[in-house]
């Protein structure tokens, strides 16, 4: 709360970006406290990790100091206060947290919890719901990410202009950082892979894994020099990788359709329904992971490769 107020008051955008990172971590901790491990994981990886880097890359293109707004601040304040009050009013007679009689725990949720392990065959219910029961939504969200990446590329493109100086780092030559990061990166990537393949047993899944994996490359690029990551993963590949990820997801859907089952029915993938579910979820999560990874990295390239225009 304090952090959020500070973020609004400050005019130094660099500090604001940092505060947002802290804010995300606090929110993630709050989610942990509410037993929503998967959500907390996502918030930490996306909110605190990648968003901060992207915000900073954007800052490099614009000014560090925010200009004073010309209009009065009373009207926005009034609108926000009224909305907030309405929200609090709406929540007032909501059931208490964890109340088993709350409507949210009455309809589909018990079914997911009781039948999920048998039907889909994996301990992590969140992954089962996301990737299988509501797989179509997740497909849609992956497509949204792909679309967002496409839109950013349409706007910015990935330039390889004079700003690309392989071997020269944006933050200068710092030996300690280099050594530490060199040690860290394999672990970051390994962790990304672990999260990717282990999403059905523990917290995590393709979305978080893609972000973590991309963070590894972003870190490499930041510390070892502008454009170094491009040699490891050329921008031209990212396009294809992103398309490949969504195609994998959609392909699973079309395959089940061809096998005479409904769209995205994973039981079509193997003889045993539970096996099929398992395989389907793994493939689909892989698709999500690939797409998220390549889009995050592509957006980072697009931002970091641009020269500051005055």
């Amino acid at each position: 709360m304090l952090v959020a107020i500070a973020a609004i008051r400050l005019r130094d955008l660099f500090a604001v970006a940092m505060l947002f990172g802290i804010f995300s971590f606090l929110v993630a901790a709050l989610f942990m406290d509410l037993d929503a491990v998967d959500v907390a994981f996502t918030e930490a990886a996306v909110g605190a990790g990648v968003t901060t880097v992207l915000l900073l890359s954007t800052l490099r293109l614009t000014n560090r100091w925010e200009r004073r707004p010309g209009h009065s601040r009373l009207v926005p304040l009034l609108v926000v206060t009224i909305t907030g009050a309405a929200l609090v009013y709406g929540i007032l007679d909501a059931p208490f947290f964890g109340d088993p009689n709350a409507p949210a725990h009455q309809h589909v949720a018990p079914r997911y919890i009781e039948q999920g392990p048998q039907e889909v065959g994996m301990p992590n219910i969140v992954t089962a719901v996301l990737a299988s029961y509501r797989g179509y939504d997740t497909f849609g969200e992956t497509v949204v990410i792909y679309t967002a990446g496409l839109a950013v590329l349409l706007l910015l493109g990935i330039p390889d202009g004079p700003n690309i100086r392989p071997g020269r780092s944006a933050i200068g030559d710092q030996l300690v950082l280099r050594v530490v990061v060199k040690f860290l990166i394999p672990f970051v990537l390994l962790y990304g892979l672990y999260v990717q393949w282990h999403g059905d047993f523990g917290a995590g899944g393709g979305f978080q894994a893609g972000v973590i994996f991309a963070t590894g490359f972003v870190l490499y690029d930041l510390v070892f020099g502008d454009g170094d990551a491009r040699m490891a993963v050329p921008p031209a590949w990212l396009h294809r990788l992103a398309a490949l990820g969504v195609l994998l997801y959609g392909g699973v859907g079309v395959y089940s359709l061809l096998a005479g089952k409904p769209f995205l029915d994973y039981t079509a993938l193997a003889h045993d329904p539970v096996h099929g579910q398992h395989l389907g979820v793994l493939l689909v999560e892989l698709g999500v992971g690939i797409t998220v990874f390549s889009i995050v990295l592509a957006i980072f390239y697009a931002l970091s490769g641009r020269r500051r225009q005055v």
Partner: peptide, 23 residues
């Protein structure tokens, strides 16, 4: 026929149209 699925499609339409407008 699902409220959240509608929201997903709506979001997709929105993101695609930002790109088209700015493009």
């Amino acid at each position: 026929g699902d409220l959240f699925n509608l929201y997903v499609f709506y979001e997709l339409a929105a993101v695609a149209s930002y790109g088209l407008v700015a493009g």
